[in-house]
Amino acid sequence: MSARSGGSHVSPQLLSRPRRAVPVTLLGIVLVAVGVIAAVLGGMRLAGNLPSWASFLAGAPRSAAWNSPWGWIGFAVVAALALICLFAAILPGGVGGVRLRPGAGASGAGGREIVMTDADLEGLVERSLLARDGISRATAQREGTRLTVTASTTVADPERLRETIDRELAAKVDSLGLETPLTVKLRLR
């Protein structure tokens, strides 16, 4: 947001990049499962009675050579895990919404974070188009600072509508008071 939203705050941020909670939760579950199995095995081994399911681990997978099918299966699993974790850690992910300018007359104190999710913005644009005469279908999608709107018309020559719809869409998006203006790209069919 603008400089007005600077500084830390305890309330949740409304627009933020993905927290990666799902991959970390899955990793946590895997760690707990592997840890519990290892601890149970160790404990039962100390007590002198290995469970029957442990014989599988002591069999083929344990004695498998590096250059064997089991070895390559293990390699594939570890390599996939590495790629998934590294991509999830490096790729920033989208914020899923746009920021709006604070209302006129906002006082100088305190930060402001005024947002609208992509779903709300796209829905608003789609509905405003559908309410217009001559439009039978409309979809909108924001990516970065570009809003791509695809609309199907019921008129024989869609080009006749283009200029009016283009102007209306630009005015609609402008009227929201977005902090970073969006470039509207219209595709008429």
């Binding site: 760690l31 707990v32 840890g35 160790g42």
Partner: peptide, 18 residues
Amino acid sequence: SWILLGGGVVLALIGLWW
């Protein structure tokens, strides 16, 4: 056995913390 037990407990605790 002790390595399995100790390592398993540490892994499970890390997983639970995450």
